[in-house]
């Protein structure tokens, strides 16, 4: 919807009038935020627990340091999580599984987070993922003629075969030299397969690269619940305040007890390519 506002602003043949404003944002009771990810990679998986803060606070969140976190799968395995096991200052509020494990396709994982008396639960099923056929590098002529960042005019194209016999939901993350790359800070790249044909013949990924860069594409499988979460999240991040689009509202989540955030279980594939001739 913000795009409509942008298009609308483009219509106005003078400078789009857009300026910061201080809003009256009353303090409300903080809400528990849980972010968790279990993948099919052999690693120590994480769950982040925090509380919301006031709109104008200088911190992004208030980490919760004393939660009890565990994940159980439907095969009878129980995984315990420890808070910030490596004592990293940046990892306040992050809980890691005390052993490495790889999620299995078709298995349902259930998260339990206990903070004091309150218990928060969520579960998600690990969906299969298609393979990435290949990535290619292509020179974007428009960007070459008029680059936003000098030297950055290569784009990375994505090729794959979408399985037509099952329902899939995808989440993509793009990296340039290991830094996450988005066209806009609030972009999320995800899709269902409702409109997709089998052959995906080189769709451009986000952003532009320069010679010598290393590009990486990660593709995650998701449940429909996950697709809905990201869809709601992008609507909230990119909403227009309820003018042409709907009024902002919290995303639907698989967490109970009024917690926000999402517990995601995914299969992951990734592919890299160097930007060179």
């Amino acid at each position: 919807m913000k795009n409509i506002i942008k298009t609308f602003a483009l219509l106005l043949l003078f400078n789009a009038c857009d300026e910061p404003i201080t809003i009256d944002s009353d303090s409300v009771e903080p809400v528990v935020i849980i972010e968790g990810l279990v993948t099919d990679q052999m690693t120590s998986h994480y769950v982040r627990v925090s509380r919301s803060v006031d709109f104008y606070d200088d911190v992004a969140v208030e980490p919760v340091l004393d939660a009890q976190v565990s994940i159980r799968d439907d095969q009878g395995n129980l995984y315990s999580f420890d808070h910030n096991p490596w004592n990293n200052a940046e990892q306040q509020g992050y809980y890691y599984s005390d052993i490495e494990f790889a999620g299995q396709v078709g298995t349902t994982y259930s998260l339990t987070v206990t903070i004091g008396e309150e218990v928060y639960r969520a579960s998600d099923r690990l969906q299969p993922i298609m393979a990435i056929d290949s990535l290619t590098v292509s020179l974007d002529e428009d960007e070459f003629d008029d680059p936003e960042d000098p030297g950055y005019y290569y784009e990375v194209l994505f090729f794959a075969r979408e399985p037509q016999d099952r329902k899939d939901f995808y989440l993509f993350k793009f990296y340039r030299n290991d830094s996450i790359l988005r066209d806009d800070e609030d972009d999320i790249y995800f899709s269902d397969d409702d409109l997709l044909a089998e052959e995906i013949n080189g769709i451009p990924t986000a952003g532009y690269y320069s010679l010598g860069d290393q590009a990486r594409v990660e593709m995650y499988s998701m449940s429909r619940q996950g697709f809905i979460y990201y869809n709601d999240l992008i609507n909230l991040l990119q909403g227009d305040g309820g003018m042409f689009g709907a009024p902002p509202v919290n995303p639907r989540t698989n967490l109970d007890n009024d917690a926000l955030g999402f517990f995601q279980v995914s299969a992951v594939v990734s592919e890299e390519i160097a930007i060179e001739f």
Binding site: V31, A60, G242, L260
Partner: peptide, 11 residues
């Protein structure tokens, strides 16, 4: 109008 009453971080 619906104004936010707080914020949080996800990823």
């Amino acid at each position: 109008f619906t104004l936010p009453s707080g914020k949080y971080q996800y990823e």
